[in-house]
Design a binder for these strands. Structure first.
Lengths: 108, 108
DNA sequence: ATTCTTTATCGTAATATTGCAATAAGACAA
DNA sequence: TTGTCTTATTGCAATATTACGATAAAGAAT
């Protein structure tokens, strides 16, 4: 198969999975970390910062954009990729119950 | 290819990606949500709660275990799968910089 | 010992992902 | 227009993932 059965799960579960999946590759983690630490969002800078070919980085950026974790804005000659605060807030909020749950002692 | 170039990235980046990837499927999200909300960790209960075949759920549990997000303990006749607090704390901690970053105004 | 219950593994088919070279597409400059 | 710079897309090969039936493995119960 290889086809995820999304119908069996809630919209929220699918959305959280989509966020997590988008972050589930070290190159995409590196892109997000770059955008979180640098005051620089130019696509070319990201490509330079990630040790993969331009075509590959572009593909990863597309996946992050599809998941909604980043958004692209035209900035003169190039494109500025920024974090999407709304989506990240939602991501955080959906993880919160588990983050809270692990504060109490484990069951076994 | 289909082969992730992990060598190009830091251990931390790879670990965060592994956590996220493990959570990147609605069935595994559902499993984690079940363990976060129920005081029940018995493998059989998880299988019943997830609308997929037993073999498939077992496979998803294995992936969560490989990533370290859950741990399995023998509990009499069955197996108890619990969240691994240490790993979840690390996961949370690694996401923190981005969660913090989105609190300030976006660059564009 | 045999049977039942519970969980893991194997085998297989279908689909998805990763990576890159080559190339296209778009905006700007001269 | 022609060229240049920046980013996206295409095409392809290699590998990974998803799903499930069948079956194995290990312990409990009879």
């Amino acid at each position: 198969m290889g086809l995820t059965k999304t119908d069996n799960f809630t919209t929220e579960q699918n959305e959280l999975a989509a966020f997590a999946k988008a972050l589930g590759h070290p190159a995409r983690v590196a892109i997000i970390e770059y955008l979180s630490s640098q005051n620089d969002c130019v696509c070319g800078s990201i490509v330079d910062a990630i040790p993969l070919a331009q075509a590959t980085v572009s593909q990863h950026l597309k996946e992050l954009k599809n998941a909604g974790l980043i958004q692209g804005n035209i900035e003169g000659n190039s494109i500025c990729y920024c974090l999407n605060p709304e989506k990240w807030k939602k991501f955080k909020q959906m993880l919160e119950p588990t983050f809270t749950h692990i504060e109490q002692p484990v069951c076994c």
